[in-house]
Design a protein around this nucleic acid. Structure first.
Lengths: 148, 148
DNA sequence: ATATATTACTACCTTTTTGTAGTATTTATT
DNA sequence: AATAAATACTACAAAAAGGTAGTAATATAT
């Protein structure tokens, strides 16, 4: 479950983009904002485009925008796409043979924790993040008004 | 959270040992039972001894036994010991600056899933696994009696 | 004593992941 | 047309993780 830095990067990028309101995000801009290594970030952005999360436009003033509605991208999907389907549903003891029919001793216990996690990740879309972020902004602004 | 195969191996080994009743477990025996690469397994067993989970005896008839009571070893401890303390409590977006005071947009949501997981892992000791395993055995035996 | 079965140590090799470099391509601006 | 600011592609380099090999040390059995 999020074994890779790459997946973390992807969530960072998509989360960031989802919560701002730019028309277009260039790799250079994202690099400066997020501190992800320039070249690696570019490759990852291309990957995210190939996977259908983003849409790229080349040339001057080019960059990346979302290819789909934010509501359609949930966090579990991002993780699954980048790490392969299994990462979110592996046996905690690492037994490849641990399945419902033939569970390992940890199966039920671990399943409970895992399900909770997967549920939350599947139910959180980028649109939700955007909503949350904007609420936070409003709250901060109101606090500012009250205290000043 | 369980980023490494090594951690998986460790849980497999300790879980296996906890649920059987041998006096002593040699690396060779564990290798045959668990299919973990021979040489790597040995190194890991030595590591687990250094970390105070196991106690080793050299020489003929040597091997490994638990160094502490099974009740004192919970799964979160194993994971923390092998992967470093942070693995179980990292920000899902990978922000090192994401803390309670300055949470990322996913902080609360992710915290909820993570806490559930950590709770379960911390509350499950090797002794619990042993108990579960023996219950399973008894159940299977009874089933056998009933069906035969 | 010697042989055997075990762990311990150290160094190395392989694979995967992360990160970099160079060059080509695309497109808006001037 | 030239320039500049972008992405795309391919290959390579570095670091981390996973795995192997050789040899030394230890203790039991014969």
């Amino acid at each position: 479950m999020i074994r890779n830095k790459t997946t973390e990067y992807a969530l960072t990028i998509l989360g960031f983009m989802a919560t701002r309101n730019e028309d277009m995000y260039s790799a250079e801009y994202l690099h400066k904002q997020l501190n992800i290594p320039r070249r690696y970030l570019r490759r990852l952005l291309t990957d995210l485009s190939k996977h259908g999360f983003l849409k790229s436009t080349s040339g001057r003033n080019g960059g990346f925008v979302f290819a789909r509605d934010l509501k359609e991208i949930n966090l579990a999907l991002v993780i699954n796409t980048l790490e392969g389907y299994e990462t979110l549903c592996t046996c905690i003891l690492g037994f490849s043979c641990c399945i419902v029919d033939k569970p390992c001793i940890m199966h039920d216990t671990w399943m409970e924790a895992r399900s909770k996690m997967v549920e939350i990740l599947s139910n959180t879309t980028l649109a939700d993040l955007k909503g949350k972020y904007q609420m936070d902004l409003i709250k901060k602004t109101l606090d500012g008004i009250n205290t000043v």
